[in-house]
Design a protein around this nucleic acid. Sequence first.
DNA 1: GCTTAACTTTGATCAGGATCAAAACAAGAT
DNA 2: ATCTTGTTTTGATCCTGATCAAAGTTAAGC
Lengths: 246, 246
Amino acid sequence: MNDISFNSRDCGNCPIRHRAVCARCQPDELERLDAIKYYRTFEAGQPVIWSGDPMEFVSSVVSGIATLSQTMEDGRTQMVGLLLPSDFIGRPGRDAAPFDVVAVTDLTLCCFRKKPFEDMMERTPAIGTRLLQMTLDELDSAREWMLVLGRKTAREKIASLLAILARRDASLHMKPPRDGMSFELPLTRESMADYLGLTLETVSRQVSALKKSGVIELQGKRRVVIPNLQALITETGDDMDGAPIT
Amino acid sequence: MNDISFNSRDCGNCPIRHRAVCARCQPDELERLDAIKYYRTFEAGQPVIWSGDPMEFVSSVVSGIATLSQTMEDGRTQMVGLLLPSDFIGRPGRDAAPFDVVAVTDLTLCCFRKKPFEDMMERTPAIGTRLLQMTLDELDSAREWMLVLGRKTAREKIASLLAILARRDASLHMKPPRDGMSFELPLTRESMADYLGLTLETVSRQVSALKKSGVIELQGKRRVVIPNLQALITETGDDMDGAPIT
DNA sequence: GCTTAACTTTGATCAGGATCAAAACAAGAT
DNA sequence: ATCTTGTTTTGATCCTGATCAAAGTTAAGC
């Protein structure tokens, strides 16, 4: 077990070391009950877990993107989180998943079986502390998103989403966001709508509107160029010194 | 220091023992830097802390109700949380408050100075574990609220808020919610609007509409009677077996 | 009692975004 | 090439909730 250790310098946001803690297991090792850590891959569009399902593992995103969402009986859905590399998925101490997790691109998770992970947490308090910090950050992000959902206009919502995606894309590549940067939209118009509490038509129209205003440029349908970061932030309606939404 | 201990049976949701851990300090003891634990009271309407302010304490609500909210420059505000007795306020490991906290009724907080509390957490991992559980619960609640804000109609939003308040009032009195129960609305129509992402006029109209439909009864403007709990839950749009929103 | 101020209800009108519908576009598969 | 399927854009219309305005209610203070 001492090959599973916590090292906060290993990976900025993740309580688990990703690299070579133990050899990468093959997917079928999932079946081996004694496998403590293993990797799982999902194809774009595949569900990782449904709300209410028993969760026998905790994990963190190694590569790819997943969404966390809820759906009402009549089909209305709301995304409640976007899971990017280094994000943590799981609920130590809980049995059932509270939300649906779906891979939106090809996805690789680094999984720990829950019980051994909880044991490890108990022996290594730093993991719990790190997890608490990450959870508090997520809570703040969720609450900031509540302002977006509850009070912002469609245009501000789109700008807010693009600003977050820009920031996260930049931090993923370990460089600060800057004027002229560009990134690939990981979401369809429909997923963007589900994240923002809008319809896909409104998303399309507002993206076009921001483009026409020169706030963004589009290369194809999915690549977004941000000529002037401050202009984008102004469109979000936030104060410029706003807390960095992670 | 050994008079500050963690006892999970003391209070259902709070990582800190409320009762008689040390003698109640007078408010002015706040000034004494060596006071580790003390009580603070706020009058209805008073701010507890503003977003961005340094937070030199963590605390939990002993009595009364506070709101957690954000405001945009142009005055649009969104409540992001309702703090009831036993709820925790604070961010171990953080210096600045992420949101505004305002007392909506007379409020008593049980405060710990942050540094000693963090030391205590380090020595007593169970506190950190408990705090992680509470934070995960809050995160789930926040995410469930995102569905309310993003996808529900005004009528469903009002029903959802009333359902939550009913549940929390019941659990405060340690009994299960039941048909015919009643509770006092702790919020003005305006605060309800800020919580739900609506205007106060819409709140007023929808409350009246629910009353006219017989889903609720009103005694005065603030006391709500729920003749049929299931009928209210149906109005929320959630599935009946929905996760208990705390 | 009256006054005042905060809160709440109700009414009339407006507008932002939803809905319904159809066409345009892109990428694979045959 | 052509077909298929999924995604995106654009257009026309509708409706929910916002906005503007005014009156009603409540409770506290004098």
